[in-house]
Design a protein around this nucleic acid. Sequence first.
DNA 1: CGTGTTTGACCCGCGC
DNA 2: GCGCGGGTCAAACACG
Length: 284
Amino acid sequence: MSGKEKPDPDSAAASTWELRRHGADDEDGADHSFFFGSDDYKESSILSEFGWNLPPEPSNRFANFAPIEPDSSAGAAPDAISSSIEPTTEASPSNRSVSSSSSEDRPEKSVAAADPPPDAAGKTKKKGQKRIRQPRFAFVTKSEVDHLEDGYRWRKYGQKAVKNSPFPRSYYRCTNSKCMVKKRIERSSEDPSVVITTYEGQHCHYTVGYPRGGGLAAAHEAAAPFSSYLPPNNSHLLYHPRLPHPPPRVQPPTAGGGDPTPPAEAAGEGLLGDIVPPRMRNNG
DNA sequence: CGTGTTTGACCCGCGC
DNA sequence: GCGCGGGTCAAACACG
């Protein structure tokens, strides 16, 4: 930690973004670890690979792909992520960095969205069924709120204590029944203010509906995925107008006026105010 | 009533 | 082969 204390006081809140990409070279076990300090094109490439729309703007070099160790195991990823936070933030031009991680080599237990596991009904995971890990994105965010809004609705399905970390790891799944995207949220043991959000898979829908009081606000949120990092109780916002959109594989008809979901930027700074985070209660 | 969270148990992969 | 740790399930519970 030598320069990341106050990377940029000007930046809207001390939000550090990191987007890592796990090399997904299962075949030969090779790991494609990328480190992008300023190669925007690469960022875009990687992001687009996941369906993220990242306008290649030189000024938005928030994305900083840091080298991430190959997630040797299901639990190695988080550790690797945490361990590479510092080096990456240090290299980040601003105080944001994004890293993506994809590892399709890892067989998923029951995330086989494509083919519905016949046995998935229970914990009876097919023994022979190899896990098929989806591409992953690991966002490292400096935030006080764990669950950052990204325009999608998530349902928590698990929580586990992380080894070597006082903070538990939360597991979320997209509420869309057809969408098997998952995300893990955990805090860095070294820097409690750092939230590591790891997305896994790609949304098979543009956004999700907000049947419960979603309304316009929800629509806005849906329209501004990843732009509504609105801490419920924090004055400092962790949102960045240039954040890449979540993988909306289903692109809206942007053919002139057909865009039902204007870019977040279009909303201007009012974005944050318009966004109404979904229910984030903490009954415990 | 519907949706989401909590939580303990279970399963699996990996390292030793 | 065993143990550890991560990841997931599902029942129970809470809330609007």
